[in-house]
């Protein structure tokens, strides 16, 4: 096995172009598990460890630009946490400290698991993924990046460089159900992003569909029933919260598997969506 340690994005892209079969290695928390279990036997690995530009982030006006290899621990503990509380909360639920110290959002997206915890938040944020190759840069929305269970539109020689999304303008929530109180793969998760400036509501779900899932009808319903005031948002009729929960659950298409049942997932989504909107409109 050959391991390359490029130090720039350009060098990385050339290496990938020369050897598209190479495995990209960021934090390694997905890739090493696959290699250890021989689901993957890479002949060559391109490590992103020394590509410093991928590990930086910036806030420019109303937009966050998050480098693909910024680890979870930094999203939780830097100013990013205020700029994107939903993503920070999702990051806190990922694995254990060891995983959060090294795992990255780029890796989470490229793996594209239905249980990837940043994916619902990024989907609700309408995040844009910057994808580079020697052929140039293209931009893809998160909801279009992942097309099925662990299936993305990434070409073998393409690299996720950064993810862009708006700075928070209103409450954001992320709730995740697992049968253990930490370090657990999500049985179902729910992200809620409220944009006060645009008076819009976005809600996306995890682990209840093969690909990222937005809940358009429920979002419109919530936006129409929120009392948008300049000093905060309210919901006057409590039945709205209940209805929102069940509309979100209607959008989910969960399955039975060894981690849970479809019926429980749907139920859990309804409860989480209701609680998320309750928190967002009472805090």
């Amino acid at each position: 096995m050959t391991v390359s340690m490029p130090s720039s994005v350009d060098e990385t892209l050339r290496l990938l172009s020369d050897d598209p079969a190479a495995t990209i290695l960021a934090g390694g928390t997905d890739a090493m598990v696959e290699i250890n279990y021989e689901h993957r036997r890479p002949a060559s690995v391109v490590s992103l460890r020394r590509v410093n530009e991928l590990a930086t982030w910036s806030i420019d006006g109303g937009t966050v630009r998050l480098g693909a290899t910024v680890p979870y621990v930094e999203i939780m503990n830097s100013e990013l946490a205020a700029a994107s509380p939903g993503l920070a909360q999702a990051s806190r639920t990922v694995g254990s400290s060891q995983i959060r110290n090294t795992g990255t959002v780029g890796g989470n997206l490229a793996t594209g698991s239905p249980a990837g915890d940043t994916i619902p938040v990024l989907a609700a944020l309408d995040a844009i993924v910057e994808i580079a190759s020697v052929r140039g840069i293209r931009e893809v929305a998160v909801v279009d990046l992942i097309v099925g269970v662990k299936r993305t539109v990434l070409e073998p020689d393409e690299l996720i460089v950064a993810i862009r999304f708006p700075v928070a303008s209103g409450p954001q929530e992320f709730l995740k159900i697992g049968p253990r109180n930490a370090m657990v793969i999500s049985v179902a998760s729910c992200a809620l992003v409220i944009n006060q400036a645009e008076r819009s509501v976005a809600c996306a779900l995890g682990s209840v569909s093969p690909a990222p899932l937005r809940c358009g009808d429920a979002e419109e319903f919530a936006a129409a029933n929120i009392d948008w005031t300049s000093d905060g948002i309210r919901i006057t009729d409590p039945r709205t919260l209940e209805t929102f929960g069940s509309m979100v659950a209607d959008a989910a298409s969960p399955i039975d598997d060894h981690r849970s049942t479809a019926a429980y997932r749907k139920h859990g989504i309804a409860v989480m969506a209701r609680r998320a909107l309750t928190r967002a409109t009472t805090s």
């Binding site: 639920t93 992320f174 995740k176």
Partner: peptide
Amino acid sequence: VFDQPGGAGRTAD
């Protein structure tokens, strides 16, 4: 959160 059911997932009400 770690004193609540649901823990890190911050689901508890």
